[in-house]
Nucleic acid binder design. Structure first.
Length: 475
RNA sequence: GGCGACAUAGCCAAGUGGUAAGGCAGAGGACUGCAAAUCCUUCAUCCCCGGUUCAAAUCCGGGUGUCGCCUCCA
């Protein structure tokens, strides 16, 4: 039984999909005017893991994440770069896909672009106009917030409070300060599309309403995004969608907490926006992923190079264990598990159960990771025992970790590269030195190899080597 | 002014009524020629004050502090 915290009700609720066994999930994607940053990455990774987990739990998930490819920021940036809005969009969609892939984020089932859904957008606006919820003023179309009685239900603020707190100058043509644009009249040099109100372009909020309903239906299961989208973006989406159809829009609203940098909000004015493209140059993307999943998704999370380094080391512990298991695989024996092994298999079963229980409980990745570490200790102990390991014990343990990694995606892809001849020769020379107890020579060779990222370990079964993890950020 | 979140060890972070997970770092030990990896031991009365309760980090009230939203933002 999956429980999710629903922003709409402010409570954890038992998750029941509209259609048994199926989940429609919509997440607000990037505005493709620049590289995405580490805060965006937290959101993308969170929902990447959510959709994978739901699939793991047996749901057929349809995951839709849009690209906002037309809005003020797009227009401004395209002008700065001297390219068209569409060229800008293509450039950064490509960049998004590259960076997402680097972070192990799988592509959604649908990635609709606003500019390719103008028709659907116009349909929703028209419905709103017909129902008297939207009104036209001189080529612009506004949503009339007062016409939607439950406006404010997501942000838990009554309309008058929202209006009272407004810190921007109110356009006098609006009937109410909280009214917002559905359609904007064309300005010279800006992209525009035909509409019943003349040439223009969609407002920001309407695209998500139109595309979410187009791909997932008027009522669907989960709508997700960063916390800062609660108001006004998601509030407006609800008003638009429910206003147009009269039916409930998304049933569960999930919002990811902020990611701060060195305890400060990330913002352009502070100059501390950390884009993923740059970060991946100096940090292991898997460690970034691990770091972002090491706290509960709703908690604020502070990014710093030190924190990332801690995450990297923690992850290394898990990966070393996986490496050790794989390395042991060729030497497993068959036979019935002994008492110690029975106990370990019992712990594996308990860990699996616990993993599902904590993930089901509002997606507690932090606690799920703890489960992995607790089991890892037992596995390590088992790997160390002198009487060897059995196939029917070690294999299920490995399978569990691989299964989990199919959800979390932070394990290192093991590639046991064949050693270069030169290095193999060095290892042999060291072995020779060791057998004649020439420790100075042996240690010097070991140091040489370490400088080349190869770590040697002398085990009871002979010498073993492994590659050091990619250097993480230490600036 | 309105709404909301958070405060747990040196650092990060779970835990929402039964006496404090996990990781990083540190200390001691085992193993090793020395290491590495690993294991063992060790390191917190949970911001403060009241209250409810047999029992509170967990619930209630009051403080203090940090932060967010009400404006584009993931």
């Amino acid at each position: 039984m999956i429980k999710l915290y629903n922003t709409l009700t402010g409570k954890k609720e038992t998750f029941k999909p509209v259609k048994e066994g199926k989940v429609g999930l919509y997440a607000c994607g990037p505005t493709v005017y620049d590289y995405f940053h580490i805060g965006n990455a937290r959101v993308f990774i969170t929902f990447d893991v959510l959709r994978r987990y739901l699939a793991y739990r047996g749901y057929a998930v349809t995951f839709v994440q849009n690209y906002t490819d037309i809005d003020d920021k797009m227009i401004k940036r395209a002008a700065e770069l001297g390219i068209t809005v569409d060229e800008l969009a293509q450039r950064y969609i490509k960049a998004y896909e590259e960076d997402a892939a680097a972070l192990g984020i799988r592509l959604p089932d649908q990635q609709p672009r606003a500019t390719q859904h103008i028709q659907q957008i116009l349909t929703v606006i028209q419905q709103l106009v017909e129902r008297g919820i939207a009104y036209e003023v001189d080529g612009d179309v506004y949503y009339h917030a007062q016409a939607f009685p439950s406006y404010g239900k997501l942000s838990h603020q009554p309309l008058q409070e929202l209006a009272a707190g407004a810190r921007v100058e109110v356009d006098p043509r609006k009937r109410h300060p909280m009214d917002f644009a559905l359609w904007k009249k064309e300005k010279p040099g800006e992209p525009a599309w035909e509409s019943p109100w003349g040439q223009g372009r969609p407002g920001w909020h309407i695209e998500c309403s139109a595309m979410a309903m187009h791909y997932l239906g008027e009522t669907f299961d989960i709508h997700a995004g960063g916390q800062d989208l609660i108001f006004p973006h998601h509030e407006n989406e609800i008003a638009q969608s429910e206003g147009a159809t009269g039916n409930p829009f998304a049933r569960y609203w999930m919002h990811v907490g902020y990611l701060n940098i060195n305890k400060e909000k990330m913002s352009k004015s502070l100059g501390n926006v950390l884009n993923v493209r740059e970060l991946c140059q100096k940090a292991d993307p898997k460690a970034i992923r691990f770091f972002l999943l090491s706290a509960h998704y709703r908690s604020p999370l502070n990014f710093s190079p030190e924190q990332l380094e801690q995450a990297k080391r923690a992850l290394e512990r898990l990966n070393t264990m996986l490496y050790n298991i794989q390395e042991r695989l060729p030497r497993l024996t068959q036979g019935l598990p002994d008492q110690e092994e029975e106990a370990l298999l019992g712990q594996l079963a308990a860990s699996k159960e616990r993993f599902v229980a904590v993930m089901d409980d509002d997606f507690n990745t932090a606690e799920a990771i703890a489960v992995l570490f607790e089991l890892a200790r037992e596995v390590n102990t088992y790997l160390n025992r002198p009487q060897g390991q059995k196939e029917n014990v070690l294999r299920p343990l490995l399978d569990f970790y691989l299964e989990v990694d199919d959800i979390f995606g932070f394990a290192v892809d093991e590639e046991i590269n064949p050693l270069e001849q030169e290095i193999a020769a060095l290892i042999e020379r060291r072995e020779a030195a060791r057998s004649r107890k020439d420790w100075a020579e042996a240690d010097s060779i070991r140091d040489t190899l370490r400088e080349r990222g190869i770590i040697l370990e002398d085990t009871p079964d002979g010498v073993r080597w492994r590659m050091q993890e990619t250097e993480s950020s230490s600036q």
